[in-house]
């Protein structure tokens, strides 16, 4: 069980939260000007990085507020949580530093990441 730190309620069980996909996806300034490809990219296309990924989460059984989390998709470690209007924090200074993984480790860890 993960402990996710809600910016308003503090650390709570992962089961209290809902996942909301990639954060910081800006709504098109002029939606009517988009062609189908651009619209499809806005609606459906998301990053799928290995490593720190900014995501939207919602504290469903707590304060019911949306917030953003920076999660490492390889280790599933939540690096930081922050309120929606706050800027994305830098992933570097948080958590304990670990030895850089060798290429073999990287391949083995790849399947454990990804979205819920």
């Amino acid at each position: 069980m993960l402990l996710v730190t809600c910016p308003w309620c503090g650390p709570r069980d992962e089961t209290e939260f809902h996942y909301g996909g990639q954060a910081h996806v800006p709504h098109p300034a002029d939606p009517a000007a988009l062609d189908d490809r651009q619209w499809a990219e806005y609606v459906f296309y998301r990053e799928n990085p290995k490593g720190p990924f900014a995501e939207r989460w919602m504290h469903a059984t707590g304060c019911r507020r949306w917030f953003n989390a920076l999660r490492d998709t390889a280790s599933y470690r939540i690096l930081a949580t922050y309120r929606p209007h706050e800027p994305r924090p830098s992933p570097q200074p948080v958590e304990t530093p670990t030895a850089p993984p060798s290429p073999g480790d990287r391949r083995a860890a790849g399947s454990s990441g990804g979205n819920r």
């Binding site: 309620c9 709570r12 069980d13 089961t15 209290e16 469903a60 059984t61 707590g62 304060c63 019911r64």
Partner: peptide, 10 residues
């Protein structure tokens, strides 16, 4: 007072 889960119930 907090909002949370008790058993499966919010």
């Amino acid at each position: 007072a907090v909002s949370t889960l008790v058993g499966p119930v919010p």
